[in-house]
């Protein structure tokens, strides 16, 4: 990625534009980190940075899934509900870490498949399909727990979310593996290519032989699986199973995906982009705390950032 590719004669290419967006996000992240460090040196302390990363991890999983759904012109409002439901059910059913994760992944895949079926085969708008799933899941897990979730977290499970390998938190390693896999899938496989092309123009994708319905179902399944994983990691991090685990993640994940360059009109999005956006969001939340500002400012900042980012990308795509 040379400067000439970014700003020179080949600056109009689709890739150059994406690279510029990544550069912009990175620059933004550096600027806010620099400002915060100047205001409060404590920000750059290893403890605080590791805190930021750990907070970012569960959201990171969800954002990657959300982005893949957005790429195929979808939207997944059920991710937060999936997080809590998977956590409550799989931890309630068993106390073996392996089984918990296996059940969680299967459950996430199943819920995602239902979302995908409603959208791809029944023609339900993604918004409504996942809204309905969200509400149903909410009922299912409250009914299952009778309002008060139980189940104990096995130690091994806690380790997955809070432990270290050579000083690197296990949750981050897990996220790293997922992110690399997702990036590879999106950029270097036929499947990923078909996902993006479908989002660009579903009719043209169909005419060029893409299995369009399966693409949509699979995207929702990936989102379901990643949301399930995120639920388990978050519960491991917090240490308690709660019926509202992940509350707000549906909107945060949409926000991060949009800030990271995914367009609701489909076809666009990258793993590095949305992970950077996740870091930006979590950093901003952290800064508010570090600087001793009112927590509520987080909301104002987040909301403004969503609209601002969407406006910036909108202007670019119009040119």
């Amino acid at each position: 990625m040379t400067m000439s590719a970014l700003f020179g004669k080949n600056s109009g290419t689709v890739r150059a534009q994406q690279n510029r967006e990544l550069l912009m996000l990175t620059g933004f992240l550096i600027v806010i980190w620099a400002i915060t460090t100047a205001l409060s040196p404590r920000f750059l302390s290893p403890a605080n940075l590791s805190d930021i990363l750990l907070q970012a991890a569960p959201l990171g999983f969800v954002v990657i899934g959300q982005m893949i759904v957005i790429i195929v012109r979808g939207l997944d409002l059920s991710v937060a509900s999936i997080m809590a439901t998977v956590a409550v059910l799989s931890i309630g059913l068993n106390d073996n870490t392996g089984v918990i994760f296996a059940v969680g992944i299967l459950l996430g895949a199943l819920i995602g498949a239902i979302n995908g079926y409603l959208v791809a085969y029944r023609g339900v708008t993604p918004f409504l399909a996942t809204l309905a799933t969200m509400i149903v899941l909410q009922g299912v897990r409250f009914a299952y727990t009778g309002g008060a979730p139980g189940g104990t977290l096995p130690d091994a499970f806690r380790w997955l979310a809070t432990g270290n390998i050579y000083g690197i938190p296990v949750a981050l390693i897990l996220l790293g593996v997922v992110a690399v896999a997702a990036h590879w899938l999106l950029e270097y496989t036929v499947y990923g290519r078909r996902l993006k092309l479908y989002g660009d123009n579903p009719d043209a994708a169909y005419m060029t032989g893409a299995p369009t319905r399966l693409l949509v179902v699979s995207a929702f399944m990936i989102s379901g699986i990643l949301a399930g994983l995120a639920g388990l990691v978050l519960v491991g991090y917090v240490g308690i199973v709660d019926n509202w685990t992940g509350r707000g993640y549906e909107l945060d994940s949409i926000a991060a995906a949009v800030i990271g360059g995914a367009a609701l009109s489909g076809g666009k999005g990258s793993v590095p982009g949305v992970l950077l956006a996740t870091l930006v969001l979590v950093s901003l939340f952290n800064i508010v705390v570090i600087l001793g500002l009112s927590i509520e400012l987080q909301l104002v900042i987040k909301g403004s950032l969503i609209v601002l980012a969407a406006a910036v990308y909108m202007r670019r795509s119009r040119r």
Partner: peptide
């Protein structure tokens, strides 16, 4: 600005509750 109403109102809702 031409942004999808979903994103716009999601953003303003967050700001307003803040």
């Amino acid at each position: 600005v031409g942004i999808h109403p979903l994103i716009v109102t999601l953003g303003t809702s967050t700001i307003l509750s803040g």
